[in-house]
Computed example of a mutant assay.
Amino acid sequence: MSHQPDPLGDLDGDVYVSPRHLASTTGTGDPALAPLLDLGWDLRYDEDSNVYMSAPDRRVRLGYLPEGDDDGLWRINAYKDSFGPPVWGVCFNDRVPTEFVQAFTTVLATAYEQGPDAYLARPVAGTDEHDPFLAIVPLLKQGWEIDRPRWDVIAVHAPDGLAGMEFTAGDLDSEAELTTRAARWQLWAGKSVDRPTWYATASTDTPVALLAAVTECVADPAPLPRWREATFSYIKDMAQLTPILPPGSTAPTPLDVRRTTASRRPAALPAASVPRWSTTSPPALPGPRR
């Protein structure tokens, strides 16, 4: 069963948000949990209503943590040894559009059914299927531009300058990759990479297919449906909101969305100079706790 988001199908909202990277969370984790629940993954709650899921072999674990210690709402780790350290880890913060997390868990479910060679597949530069830079191809196809903000970072930025993805080269601290934003990959949206509205991180050995599932969803030019009154569900004053028309009316096309977005494109943003902050450091959180 496919759980890919269909923003033009069963609508849940009264406006379209475009570009979709300026949408925010839908406020429910159910769509992103569904692909794994369909495989019979174990689901448990704690007394604070945090959700914990484990694959049948305990080699992949997911935490949905609305009452966690920081803004890392989604944490997903994979293991070669169920009692050893994680091989890779991914984090989505509490403002990431739910559709992007759902895209990840949908492909993760497929990879898990294929076996460890799929969900533990290490990125290998220069290979046809596992080259890490294949993760940015969907973004480049939609006009995102390559940048080199530092000698050790390759970045791509959305045409409106309000989203980006970074790849950091060189040796990284494996523990810091799992607990802070100092990870191999970082995807973000907002006015600045240093103070993003939402972000997602992925550690060094995260399979390319899982990363590409997210970037393909981010790059999709179709808008996302949201409720206008729920201001947390889009990036206020930056997103373009278009009313969802009644049945029988014509919904905005991707071309309509691109034209509107182009007309609102801001001037180039100044280079950021604020140091990165850790997701484990509460004083540096970009917004109020959930």
Score class of each variant (00 low, 15 high):
L39H: 13
P246W: 04
L211K: 02
L187Q: 00
V124T: 08
T168K: 09
I154Q: 09
V218L: 08
L139D: 11
Q240Y: 04
W151Y: 13
F92T: 00
G9A: 10
A209W: 06
G13Y: 08
D57V: 12
L62D: 03
T26Q: 03
G40W: 03
R75T: 04
D194I: 09
P97H: 08
M238K: 08
S203G: 05
F104E: 00
V96I: 05
E229W: 09
D14N: 14
A268I: 02
P247L: 00
P275F: 04
P159C: 11
T206Q: 00
T206D: 00
S2V: 08
L33Y: 10
S203Q: 05
E229F: 10
A200S: 06
P266Q: 13
W151P: 06
G27R: 01
T231W: 11
N77C: 09
D69G: 07
S2E: 15
D152C: 00
R20I: 02
V137S: 04
V214S: 06
D69F: 15
L162E: 00
L65R: 13
A78E: 11
A219W: 07
D81H: 14
D14L: 05
I76W: 12
A262R: 12
P196I: 11
P247Y: 00
A169H: 13
F92A: 02
A239Q: 08
P252T: 12
A155P: 09
A176H: 05
L108P: 04
A271C: 07
G72S: 08
R259L: 05
L210E: 01
L172Y: 05
T25S: 11
L37T: 12
C91A: 03
E67S: 11
R258S: 08
E166T: 10
G40C: 02
V51L: 13
Y112M: 08
Q102W: 10
W88K: 11
T105D: 01
G72F: 00
P86F: 06
D160A: 11
T231D: 12
Y234P: 01
W185M: 00
D46I: 15
A109L: 05
R44A: 15
P35M: 06
A103W: 03
R184S: 03
C91Y: 00
L245Q: 10
L22N: 05
V96T: 10
T110K: 15
A251F: 07
P288F: 01
V96W: 00
Y199F: 01
A239C: 07
I76A: 14
V15I: 05
R195N: 15
A155M: 07
Y45S: 14
H3I: 02
A103T: 02
G68Y: 08
S233W: 01
A239T: 12
G84D: 09
P247N: 00
P252K: 06
L285S: 15
R61P: 04
A121Q: 13
F100P: 01
L43H: 10
V87H: 13
W227C: 03
R75D: 03
P266N: 09
D173F: 09
L108Q: 02
C217M: 05
P56E: 13
C217A: 07
I154F: 13
E229Q: 15
P221A: 02
P7H: 00
T26D: 04
M1G: 10
S273G: 12
G89M: 05
A284N: 13
E175V: 10
